[in-house]
């Protein structure tokens, strides 16, 4: 087990290292930011000075080494646009994004699993078919368009929910959270629902497929033949078995949700990392883009590790590998 974890960690480090290289090279292909930042009447000397100030006059491999050396110490450069260190800029925005992503994931699970179970247990009922039809719709609806429609209905026509910003926040351990105030919660609802919609559909389909496969298994029929109540058969015997694929996918999807929050944050002006990324991409603010990518790479690697651990905790067949008689 320890060897396994160590190997996974080494692999993860390798991925992070590979990504620094890819990210650095990729981002350097983006046009020269100097062209945007300098004033139009700047002459050649002024241009060279700007390059030097931003460290862009060095050859590419030297730029990378400098970047790597600084990255290890947590310095990912200063934002070209506003001149503050990029890493703290991103980290400061992170709680907002995580709050949004986790809320969306929470919605996906508490709505998706019960609906998916219902559709799986009663596939031919009206409710079951409606749920599946709805999930196809949820799968097909483009996130950004749904966001616009949510704003149109709830903010413009009904005027019941705010459509921009985080609203009132409270500090918990130095982190600002919207979810704990009524106003903040109202601001959170639309973007979270928007972000969750696709994932709800995904969880419904996964759960339904899992239920349909599990209820035909002998052990479910045997559980019933032993006289267990239907509630226990479904909530323990069926649910525990389908939790394995659902947890795996939900965990892996968390990274995707964080990435897709780029869209929801842009639409709802949610001040998270995603909105910062789009703004920085438009300004060709290289250090901020790099910092965003490095942070997300780290997050994905950590998420993947956690999912692996959870996976083994849920499935005894993997956990106790080698212990079988």
């Amino acid at each position: 087990m320890i060897i396994y974890v160590a190997r996974r960690l080494a692999q993860a480090l390798l991925v992070v290292f590979a990504m620094t290289l890819i990210v650095f090279l990729g981002v350097n292909v983006i046009g020269s930011p100097v062209d945007i930042l300098i004033s139009p009447d700047c002459n050649q000397a002024c241009y060279q000075a700007s390059l030097k100030a931003l460290g862009l006059d060095l050859p590419l491999h030297q730029q990378y080494l400098v970047f790597l050396k600084n990255a290890v110490t947590g310095d990912l450069g200063k934002s070209f646009a506003i001149g503050v260190p990029a890493l703290p800029l991103i980290v400061e925005r992170m709680p907002a994004t995580l709050e949004l992503a986790l809320s969306a994931m929470f919605l996906a699970i508490v709505i998706g699993i019960p609906l998916g179970m219902w559709a799986g247990l009663k596939p031919d009922s009206v409710a079951g078919k409606t749920i599946m039809g709805g999930s196809i719709l949820g799968f097909s609806l483009p996130t950004f368009w749904v966001g616009l429609m949510l704003i149109m209905v709830f903010a413009v026509y009904l005027g019941v929910l705010p459509s921009t910003g985080r609203g009132e926040t409270v500090q918990v351990f130095g982190v600002r959270l919207s979810i704990l105030t009524l106003d903040g919660l109202a601001h959170l609802i639309l973007p979270a629902v928007n972000l969750a919609l696709y994932k709800i559909s995904l969880v419904i389909r996964l759960t339904r497929a899992g239920v349909r496969e599990t209820i035909t298994q002998d052990y479910v029929k045997f559980a019933r033949a032993r006289g267990l109540k239907a509630r226990r058969v479904i909530l323990v015997h069926v649910l525990k078995n389908i939790m394995i694929p659902v947890v795996t996918v939900v965990g892996l999807e968390l990274g995707n949700v964080i990435a897709f929050s780029v869209v929801s944050e842009t639409i709802f002006s949610w001040p998270g990392m995603g909105k910062l990324l789009i703004d920085s991409l438009r300004l060709l603010d290289r250090p901020v883009v790099v910092a965003y990518l490095m942070i997300t790479v780290l997050m994905f690697v950590v998420i993947n590790l956690i999912v692996d651990v959870l996976y083994t905790a849920l499935d005894p067949r993997i956990r106790l590998q080698g212990a079988a008689i």
């Binding site: 002998d218 052990y219 032993r226 015997h237």
Partner: peptide, 19 residues
């Protein structure tokens, strides 16, 4: 079921819940 009438199934690999 299970109380006064019990059943044993064919494939023992499948009748016990693996998790």
């Amino acid at each position: 079921r299970g109380k006064r009438i019990a059943m044993v199934f064919q494939d023992p690999m499948m009748t016990l819940n693996p998790v």
